[in-house]
Nucleic acid binder design. Sequence first.
DNA 1: GGTTCCTGCAAATTATTTTCTTGATACGTT
DNA 2: AACGTATCAAGAAAATAATTTGCAGGAACC
Lengths: 287, 287
Amino acid sequence: MDIFTTMQDERGRLSQSEIRIADIVLNDFEFAVNASIIELAGKADVSPPTVTRFCRRLGCESFSDFKVQLARTAYVGMRYLKPEPKSIAPADVAQDIITKAQNALFLLHRGLDVDAIERAANRLAGAEMIYAFGSGGNSSMIANELQNRLFRLGLRITASSDHSMQLMMAAAAKPTDVLIGSSFSGRNAELVRAFMLAREAKVPTIALTQSGSPVANAAEITLPVDLPEGDNIYRPTSTRIAYLAVVDILASLIAYRIQPQATVTLRRIKQQLVTHRDGDDRQLLGD
Amino acid sequence: MDIFTTMQDERGRLSQSEIRIADIVLNDFEFAVNASIIELAGKADVSPPTVTRFCRRLGCESFSDFKVQLARTAYVGMRYLKPEPKSIAPADVAQDIITKAQNALFLLHRGLDVDAIERAANRLAGAEMIYAFGSGGNSSMIANELQNRLFRLGLRITASSDHSMQLMMAAAAKPTDVLIGSSFSGRNAELVRAFMLAREAKVPTIALTQSGSPVANAAEITLPVDLPEGDNIYRPTSTRIAYLAVVDILASLIAYRIQPQATVTLRRIKQQLVTHRDGDDRQLLGD
DNA sequence: GGTTCCTGCAAATTATTTTCTTGATACGTT
DNA sequence: AACGTATCAAGAAAATAATTTGCAGGAACC
């Protein structure tokens, strides 16, 4: 898949010299992409042929192929190997945030359970009514987002961030409905209770949360999002972007499943928004 | 900055042969990163030295340096050169969405007006009251997000997606307050009206929108987000992720500006959330 | 007509890979 | 336990391939 992961996975099967090479690449990425095979060999105290063999073992054609692979994934993948130095100058803060966001997406993609997403999409596409639950700023945004995306496809959906309402709705839901809930921490006890209630009534449940968490265990289908949260308390956002991406994937899959219907509804909504604005037909749906 | 942009910028100053090389690289990126200088030269009908000179002109050390640079930006940058082939298989949809999201972040970063963001952050950090406006699903999410992020820093802020309320609030705002509004399309006429009203009363205004648009023109400070929107009507999300990132940057900068105060408030909020849950202190703020 | 710049050729340099060999380790046999 | 064999890692040197440099012819533009 990507060369960094491969290096970590293969580490156990490498020889001493090769481990030295791997460590240098991992620790001083900047050096590695720019170095020639001779320089890299020199730094690792091995001979150039060993480096070639190392590259081959990792599944690359040649040393230069290895460098290209490295450079390719690295743009996104490298920073999570290092902590954050950086200053608080605006440009650095911006770069840091954007890199972290890209990283979150990268990691999300790597850990994505495509199968579970597909099952969830099928369930949602066939639901008579959808309840989207989430609380506390982050997850309530996700619930709203689900509503925002799915109602456009002609699905019946309501979002709620209110625990009491969630419980009542869960109790009122029917087996032909679907309950989908989000929890970043996976420890939202009220959401767990809502899931339990729904399951008793045979209502399908989908959780968007950390795998292995209470919320994950309470739901029938879990869409896991497992990211290392940075320790900077001011910035919980990169995780949220990953969640949004999952919602996006989900909504797209559902859209493809119910396409004919969705296109019609979508056009109707669009029509309405556009005429209400200024007639420019190239506008987005919703502002 | 990045090699693709450089190639496009320099295109006018290149010779015939060099333009041929550039076109091959731009059109067949996959080939270019894997080819040797000889293969690339062959395909462009030039001699290898010409390729070397081409690389130098673009600011690279050597041909291999060029390839590394190419591979580096390309992981993120390449797809926006091509339309989307792909299938609707879940794995492909997921990859497509994630790539597009990363791309949006990449492009955002490239076009970011750091200076404007800094000015906006300063304004917001010093505001007595902040009004965050946005309507229509996408922008209303941004307004909510602003509230969600900034109230944690101890700022006074309210978000509204209701046009009538927005107008009334704009009319009631004082010069020591700040109005910040978001519009993806830049054509939200009601938001423009709110900005006008605010400006008459000398209330500072900040717009998060497409540059050059009516909304952008109506605001005092514009934080431009200019992304080519993909034409798949089912997916307006990548743009949203870019907007979220801007909010994140803004919130971080503000946090650094008012740090002592923010830490205290943050701790108080955290305390409350944590005790209400299950006592695990390592939890995120908000779920 | 001169200058400048592009370009390819060939040579030189440099980088990379292959081949061959040595040394080390592990395993099975007596 | 001692020996022999197989296997593998790893470097040296050679071969190969790739890249760069120097130079000169030629085109375009003053």
